[in-house]
Design a protein around this nucleic acid. Sequence first.
DNA 1: GTCTATATAGGGATAGAC
DNA 2: GTCTATCCCTATATAGAC
Lengths: 204, 204
Amino acid sequence: MTEKQELNPEEQILEAAKTVFQRKGFDGARMSDIAKEAGINQALLHYYYRSKDKLFQAVFRIAVLTLFPKIIQIFNTEKPLEQKIEEFINKYFDLLIQFPYMPGFVMHEMSTHPERIKEFFSSHQLLRPQKMIQQYREGVESGRYNPCDPEQFFVSVIALCVFPFAAKPIIQTALNKSDEEYKKFLHERKVYLIDFILNGMLKK
Amino acid sequence: MTEKQELNPEEQILEAAKTVFQRKGFDGARMSDIAKEAGINQALLHYYYRSKDKLFQAVFRIAVLTLFPKIIQIFNTEKPLEQKIEEFINKYFDLLIQFPYMPGFVMHEMSTHPERIKEFFSSHQLLRPQKMIQQYREGVESGRYNPCDPEQFFVSVIALCVFPFAAKPIIQTALNKSDEEYKKFLHERKVYLIDFILNGMLKK
DNA sequence: GTCTATATAGGGATAGAC
DNA sequence: GTCTATCCCTATATAGAC
C-alpha cells in the first residue's frame, strides 16, 4: 500500500502493478492485489488498462525500456574497455540495487511466456553490445587480452552482476547472512568484481 | 505426453509434475496439465498426492536433493582447488544440460514462495562450501591466489555456470543464436570458464 | 486404483448506479 | 471517473460408481 497521492490514478496503478508483478510474476499476481496496493478498487484497473495482460505489457515495457538502454549505453561509449568495465559495474550495480527484482522478473517471464515478450528484445535492439565486443576483439588482436570469445566474456560480466540479485534468497541462506550483511556483501562485490574480471581478461 | 509406461502411476505423476512445474512454475502450472502430461486423469493426482501443494513439495524436494548434494560434493573433496574447479565446471555443466530448467525454477520459487521452501536449504546443509572456502583462504595466505573474499569467489563460480541456463531466452535473443548455436555456445563455455576463472584467481 | 461427474472457490472481467 | 454488485469461467478438490 505504497500510496503516492501526487500521482494520477493511471500512474498509481502502473506503480502498484510494477510492484506486484515483479514480486509475484504474472501468474502469481492477482488483480485484487494490485488494486489494493494502488489503494483503489479492482474495476478501475480494467477501466484504465482493459485486461491483466495489457497491464502487464505496460509494466514490462516500461521496466525493460528504462533498464536495458541504460545498460547498453554504458558499454557503447568510446572509452577504453578496462575503464568502461569499471564504470559499467559501478553503474549497473547501483541500478540493480534500485530494481533488485528486475533480473528474476525478466528471466522468469522470458522463460515462461516468451511469446508475449520476445518482441521487446528483438525489435528494440536492446541487447546488442557490438561496440564492446569489437573492442574486446581488438584487445585480443593486439595481444593485451586473453584470447577468448567476446560473447562469452559479455555473458560472464552480466552473469557476475545479475546473479546475486536473482538468486538472493538462495545465496543468503547458503552463506547464512542477515539482510544487512547481504547488503554489505553486494556493496563489496563491486570492487571485487572489477578486480576479478580485469584479471580474467588481461594477459599475464 | 512423455509416457513412460515402465513407471508406476505414482512415479509417472511425479515425472509429469516435474516437467510442468519446472517449465511453468508453481503459479503457472495447472493440475490438468500435469494429468495430461502423465497420461492419466486429474482425480488420480489427488488420490496419490492430496493437493497441488503437496505434489509440488515432492517435486521440489527431489529436484533439490538430487541436485545440490552433487554440486557441493565436488567442492568438498581433498584435491587441489585448481583441479577441483576444472572438475566442478565440467561436471556441473553436464548436470545443468540434463536439467536446464532447474536454475530458473529454483530461483523463482525461492523468490516468490520462500516460506514454502526455505526449510530445505537451511535444514539440509545443502550449500555450505566450507572446504572450498577454506582452501581458497589457504591459497591466499600462501600468496598463490589473489586476495579476495572466498564467498565472493564462490558466488562468482556458481553465477558463471548457472546464468546461461537461467537467462537462456534473453541471451539467445541478444546474441541472435539458433538453438543449435546456443548449444554449441554452452559447450564451448566449459573450456572458456575454466580459463577465465583460474586467470581471475591466480596471481600474476 | 481408476474413472466421470460435480461441488466449491477464486479470479478476471463487466454492468450499471452515482 | 469511481464505486458496488455480480457474472462467468477456470482450477482445485471431492464424491461416488466401477
